[in-house]
């Protein structure tokens, strides 16, 4: 996969040419098998119905700001986990097990979209989708859910999928697996020969000039 599309102002291109997967020949077989599989054709959907799939795709695009291809195939990755009941091993009292909560929450998203815009969530335009989600993040109660609990479920599954993908590692400069080779250069501003320095170290997301919405020089 080529680099994920992300504008420099949004944090893209900070590690030019860096590729974690280019180091795969140095990884142990078990690790390489697991990681390289993510670069191949994603698994077919088994868990979500077509209606749920459409809502989930739109939700994941929003949560991870994936507006165009190539995308990390979040919906397939989450679907596989749910089909295999690979949960985190707990759920909040009063909330259903993860798979059922996913189905119910996707259907609730469509309900919100229908009541506000007369179409399903996936058909609402981007900014209106964002507005629906912003409401949920801040809600004490949303349909049958605590806003915080459903937000936690969505972001945990979405981020676990996205940041397990080597393309996402390349975007953030993470060097990935290092067994059996190990790391030799520890310490501040130390890099392995294959690591790439951040070309915009001043792009601190918390500094006012880089606050969301603000323009910046590249």
């Amino acid at each position: 996969m080529t680099a994920l599309p992300l504008q420099p102002a949004s944090g893209g291109g900070r590690f030019p040419g860096f590729s974690t997967a280019s180091q795969a020949r140095h990884w142990d077989e078990a690790t390489a098998a697991v990681v390289i599989a993510r670069l191949g054709l994603p698994q077919d959907l088994r868990y979500f119905t077509p209606v749920e799939e459409a809502a989930a795709r739109a939700l994941f695009d929003q949560l991870l700001d994936q507006r165009e291809d190539p995308r990390v195939p979040i919906v397939n990755m989450v679907d596989a986990r749910l089909a295999e009941d690979q949960t985190d091993g707990w759920h909040y009292d009063g909330m259903k097990p993860d798979g059922e909560s996913w189905r119910a929450s996707l259907s609730a998203l469509d309900e919100d979209a229908f009541s506000r815009h007369g179409v399903s969530f996936c058909q609402v335009h981007w900014d209106a989708q964002t507005a629906i989600l912003t409401n949920i993040q801040d809600a004490a109660q949303w349909h049958e859910f605590s806003g915080a609990h459903i937000w936690s479920l969505w972001t945990r599954y979405a981020c676990t999928a996205f940041y397990s993908h080597p393309a996402a590692w390349d975007e953030i400069g993470f060097a990935g697996p290092a067994y059996p080779r190990g790391y030799k250069n520890l310490g501040l501003d130390s890099r392995e020969p294959f690591e790439v320095a951040d070309v915009r170290p001043q792009q601190d997301p918390l500094r006012p000039q880089f606050a969301p919405g603000a323009e910046e020089e590249d």
């Binding site: 944090g11 929003q62 949560l63 972001t155 981020c159 940041y163 953030i172 997301p205 969301p212």
Partner: peptide, 25 residues
């Protein structure tokens, strides 16, 4: 990275804000 994303989403970031924040890892 996955655990670090939990730190970032705990600050309320998602979407473009999350990706940008994570690029600073």
């Amino acid at each position: 990275p996955i655990t670090w994303a939990e730190h970032v989403t705990a600050q309320g970031h998602w979407g473009a804000g999350l990706r940008k924040y994570m690029s600073d890892y």
